[in-house]
Write a protein that binds this DNA or RNA. Structure first.
Length: 213
DNA sequence: CGAATTTGACCGGCGC
DNA sequence: GCGCCGGTCAAATTCG
């Protein structure tokens, strides 16, 4: 069941510059940006752990900020679907929501032995029947683990571009198996490897809304 | 035949 | 210290 869907990953660059955002064929009727933390002294939100043991967090995100993250919606935009036909039918009711975690620090590992540098993780959940969201980057799977309290395994991917160690993990929720959670870690230091559609302009628009920093 | 995936082993952090 | 758990490695296998 290896379908592939062209959604978009957005490592950091989503908030900075370049790359495309959802350059896939995604008619995202509901599209929500969700910030689980304020820039002030809120506690950390370890995205990875919230994926494992508290998937409800994401639901909260979705509920709380339904009004939205600055009205970030793309319903009028309809990027060219680069999706294989058999998956296309699954894209009828897609919704995407985001959770941007701060550094996933274990609360105290900040000594001079600075090897515990946790990169920020960016997570978002997608309502989709397919697991593999093709974002234009090339990923190599390097692991898969069963997740506690979840009947679906979590898959670990690494960007194959040389010198780029961006990682992502993909997991489907048992609670709502229509939801796929994708977590990105790191920032791509190279352009997208696959030729891009005309979705760049959408991204540039979105960045206008999504540059709080 | 090279690249990507699979999958059990391994490892480090953390809680008890 | 021990065991659990999330994450990664790497050899074997499959795929293109």
């Amino acid at each position: 069941m290896v379908c592939s869907l062209r959604l978009e990953t957005f490592p950091f660059s989503f908030f900075r510059s370049s790359s495309s955002f959802i350059r896939a064929g995604f008619s995202m009727e509901k599209f929500q940006m969700l910030f689980p933390f304020s820039s002030t002294g809120s506690p950390n939100y370890p995205v990875s752990s919230s994926m494992t043991n508290s998937s409800h967090v994401f639901h909260n995100f979705q509920a709380d900020s339904s009004g939205g993250f600055l009205g970030l919606k793309t319903e009028t935009q309809h990027p060219v679907p680069r999706i294989s036909p058999e998956i296309n039918k699954d894209l009828n009711s897609q919704s995407v929501s985001f959770a941007i975690g701060s550094e996933t620090e274990p609360q105290a590992a900040k000594k001079k032995g600075e090897k515990k540098i946790r990169k920020p993780k960016y997570a978002f959940q997608t309502r989709s029947q397919v697991d593999i969201l093709d974002d234009g980057y090339r990923w190599r799977k390097y692991g898969q683990k069963a997740v506690k309290n979840n009947k679906f395994p979590r898959s670990y991917y690494r960007c194959t571009y040389q010198g780029c160690d961006v990682k992502k993990q993909v997991q489907r929720l048992t609670k709502d198996e229509g939801v796929v959670v994708t977590t990105y870690e790191g920032m791509h230091t190279h352009p997208i490897e696959k030729p891009n559609d005309n979705f760049e302009h959408i991204l540039s628009q979105m960045q206008i809304y999504s540059t709080p920093f």
